[in-house]
Design a protein around this nucleic acid. Structure first.
Lengths: 322, 322
DNA sequence: TCCCCATATGCTCAAAATAAGTATAAGTGT
DNA sequence: ACACTTATACTTATTTTGAGCATATGGGGA
């Protein structure tokens, strides 16, 4: 009844990735979807839930998790369509974990998926994704307009504005879950349809082919929670180094941060900020991988947590005009 | 086996408070301690866990919860001494909720407790609490020095430095849980002893009478988690208004923020920041409660969430010297 | 070899945010 | 009228941020 699911994330080749289990049974449509690795929580053998998680992840995948953090406990009725039919409610405690790029080999039965294959609207590294203007904005506004009364119309429109930053509200990268939930409610992701919550007909929009890869049950929701959490976390805890190799160039570090944050960063300022925070120290070696001038290799300065109250990678929130 | 516990917080008379159930059975020592209100999670009657929580809180206490957020799921073996003896492990999903000052009447069997009666070391509104220098710093360092080998000594000392800000590390108000856990491990809070985890003798320090009111089981740990979360949250979400009456003066608002944050704020700058964020708007009325010049009454400007990506009460992190 | 290209790194400058005051306003109670 | 209290406005120096230009240092091809 109670199990533990793991969102195991990394960044390889400048691309943020997450570990998913490929469907073993491609016969039924629903189970053909990839899913999060999960395992049981066994109170008699595991002192804490986190220990239990580490144990079965190591057993199943061979991965040695570095940073692990409990995310959220998911127990809504509609998370598992099978349970609705009368079985016991399944409850899962979700965890996020980060692993090193180097240890990011592929465990059997699983595969690394690009985060932004699942959440294409979250990738702003090359500017605002056209998907938002082409599909999401019009469809979501349609959905808002299709609400029963004036009040719920206004509420839906406001939620959409805040979540997606319509009309100058501005994009807040951390609101990943709010955005996914809106798309879910509006029936724009494939999961909605499967769940059968939303009655088709009457202004019902259809899951759009460009809104990313659907996952098993509510697993994309769990991932949205995880991405939002990670984005918030890198700003005030040095978790980004959990995915970096022992030595790295500043540009590699920037790429990793950009990957998770889903936003481009100003190169010169990034290095200035990282240096100012005392997050890294030079190793003395250089890397000539890139073609141009060789970049200096740095390592994480562990001491930073003893010096700063909230060490993390500072990021622009966008300059406020007024 | 799975239940929901609620940390219900408010601020009354400038003092942050939390709702606890007083012990009904004062015969046994352990159960004489106050405890968090809790209720079962009933999957068949409640669609979501949050709904279930709201329902039984309303039933039990009559309180109408405003802001509710899931905190953490607690399932460690030692959270419930009874379960260790062989019973089923009890797991609880903790929630934080905020209620209005006005609705903060006392439900039967429960009482409002000052947060800082439970966490005296967290209240820096009148400067650094002497408790830290008098008791915590020496005792914690003793505990660190009593570790087995040199490495764990260093680790303990580092953890203490970071958590309590010894040696210029600086106090990070959000690390409430880390601090409580250190005190717990060092045997400085009464809960440690009850749990019987730490063997007495050999360098064992004793729970100190000044380290706050002990609660049932791991409930003070849950509260520490909640306080840390709230402190972080008020900076980037306008949750503080959940505890304010509909109209309030800026100084009342400041007092509420200071109460939760546990730190004093510069009055003139506070009002400037609040105004600059557009968090409030004047009601036109004034309040003559205070004796001096009457203060203007403000109300929360709901629109702020539509304008700013992360509206909240900005607070000084302390100017960085280097 | 020398020049071009690519990337890395250093530096400048203006705009905005912040910390910490000082000064003034507008009430109450004596 | 006066002292006292609290509220609010304004000033100033400093730090942080956003953005761009300039220079450094390698590789590869003419």
């Amino acid at each position: 009844m109670l199990d533990l699911s793991a969102v195991i994330a990394t960044v390889t080749l400048d691309e943020p990735r997450v570990l998913l289990v490929k469907a073993s049974d491609p016969s039924s449509e629903a189970s053909a979807r990839p899913r999060l690795p999960f395992g049981p929580f066994n109170p008699s053998s595991d002192r804490t839930m986190e220990e239990g998680l580490r144990r079965w992840v190591e057993n199943q995948t061979g991965l040695n998790l570095g940073f692990v953090e409990q995310l959220y406990t998911f127990g809504d009725r509609f998370r598992d369509p099978v349970a609705i039919a009368g079985g016991a409610r399944s409850i899962t405690v979700g965890y996020v974990a980060l692993v090193r790029q180097s240890s990011a080999r592929r465990p059997a039965g699983s595969d690394w998926f690009d985060w932004y294959r699942l959440f294409p609207w979250e990738d702003w590294r090359n500017g605002r994704p056209s998907l938002i203007e082409d599909v999401i904005q019009p469809e979501i506004l349609l959905w808002a307009a299709s609400a029963e009364d004036a009040k719920s119309k206004r509420l839906r429109r406001e939620r959409a504005e805040i979540a997606f930053g319509f009309n100058d509200v501005g994009w807040d990268a951390d609101r990943v879950l709010e955005r996914y939930e809106l798309l879910y409610e509006a029936g724009l992701v494939a999961e909605t349809v499967t769940d059968g919550r939303i009655k088709t007909g009457e202004g019902q929009t259809e899951a759009h082919p460009r809104t990313g890869l659907p996952l098993h049950q509510d697993h994309r929701r769990i991932l949205a929670t995880a991405l939002g959490r990670l984005r918030g976390k890198i700003r005030y805890r040095p978790v980004i180094f959990e995915v970096m190799p022992p030595a790295f160039t500043l540009f590699q570090l920037q790429r990793a941060v950009e990957g998770l944050a889903g936003a481009p960063l100003h190169k010169q300022n990034f290095r200035r900020l990282v240096a100012a925070e005392g997050l890294v120290e030079p190793t003395g070696r250089v890397s000539a991988e890139t073609g141009g001038r060789p970049a200096e290799l740095f390592r994480f300065r562990r001491d930073v947590v003893r010096e700063r109250p909230a060490p993390g990678v500072r990021m622009p929130r966008g300059r406020r005009t007024k």
